[in-house]
Computed example of a mutant assay.
Amino acid sequence: MVRIGYTMMTEQAGPRELVSHVVGAEQAGFDFSVISDHFFPWLEEQGHAPYAWSVLGAAAQATSRIPLMTYVTCPTFRYHPAVVAQKAATMQILSGGRFRLGLGSGENLNEHVVGAGWPAAEVRLDMLEEAVDIIRRMFDGESVNHHGAHFDVEDAKLWDLPDQPPPIGIAVSGPRSCELAGRSGDLVIGTEPKAELLQQFDAHGGAGKPRVGQLPVCYDPDRDAAVARAHEQFRWALGGWKVNAELPGPDAFDQASSFTRPEDVAKEIPCGDDVDAFVEAVRPYTEAGYTEVALVQIGGDQQQPFLEWARATLLPALRSL
């Protein structure tokens, strides 16, 4: 049976609201939760970008059962991998062992702010691989000295280590990232229901490991209102990974999606309150081999109605998958 998760979408709600939402998700019966880690919203209409790690700390104290996870953190530009290791270890302790560290090679949208440039995808994956190695060594309790192609670490040690280190998930979009995830990750993270990605993950050591997908949805009893909101706030998502990783800010995403129509968005994102449409949107992920799917309810002010509907209607229907 697929596990269904809830997404704390930092781009569409403030920090206090995000904590309230994940408390509601726990009460509604979601199996796990994830949080985006962004410096900017994708579009100005979304309107938010609080610091995800502060939200996670508050969420760990406000909840008691629901697992927490970054989806995803980039440990190579805004954050040095040694700092990510410290943050993740602390989160694992605060949450009582409920935290998973999702890592990825990042998007220009968030990482350009530190002025380090934005290299080619292959270089970013090299950096991610080196960062994962540093984080693993620190989770093992080592005093790490490292002088690599991209990072230097001088005598770094974690003084507060959890009993079990956080599992590391690695986001994938192509063969190279699948190879890295299979070899170095405890789980794989994807946003597309492509079976070939998971097959490549399995071929490099991923067989039997969890695989976590993510899917935007837009619940509203008024389908037209749902379509309008999904278009306003999520039209950027139709651009695809190769575009979305490269654009530098909300204005660029607005321009790139300027010809995307509401009906284009409605074809890709289930909108309204037809539970069968939501189930059918999740089905390709389960058929591709995902064991967990995190839902993104579009609209920061629409979370409570969605959570109530999910508890009563959507989650029971999705359990059938």
Rank of each mutant, 00 (worst) to 15 (best):
W236N: 13
A317N: 09
L68K: 08
L161D: 08
M9V: 13
A88T: 11
H112P: 02
A149K: 15
V153G: 04
I170R: 03
T73Q: 13
C74F: 04
P216G: 09
I93W: 02
R136N: 11
H21G: 07
W118Y: 11
Q61K: 04
V243C: 14
A230Y: 03
W42R: 01
D37Q: 03
Q92A: 05
E107F: 13
G240A: 14
A149C: 14
A266W: 08
A281M: 12
S258V: 11
N110A: 12
M91P: 05
I135W: 00
G213Y: 05
V22K: 03
K267T: 06
V296H: 10
P210D: 06
R100Q: 15
E111F: 08
V188K: 06
P119A: 12
V23A: 12
K194W: 01
L101D: 00
W53G: 08
L314F: 15
R223H: 00
A85L: 11
F234V: 04
G97A: 03
I93D: 05
P50A: 11
P50D: 10
G117D: 07
D264T: 13
Y71M: 15
I189T: 11
Y6L: 15
C271D: 07
D186I: 10
K267F: 01
F234I: 04
V19R: 08
G97P: 01
P221Q: 03
F77E: 09
D264P: 10
A256Q: 09
I269A: 11
D133R: 02
I4A: 01
P67T: 12
S320G: 08
Q304D: 09
Q304Y: 00
Y290C: 09
A62V: 02
P15T: 12
V265P: 07
V83C: 03
I168Q: 03
P210W: 05
P316K: 06
N108H: 14
W53N: 09
V217K: 00
F32N: 03
Q199E: 15
L43T: 03
I93S: 06
L314C: 15
I168R: 01
G104F: 14
C271I: 08
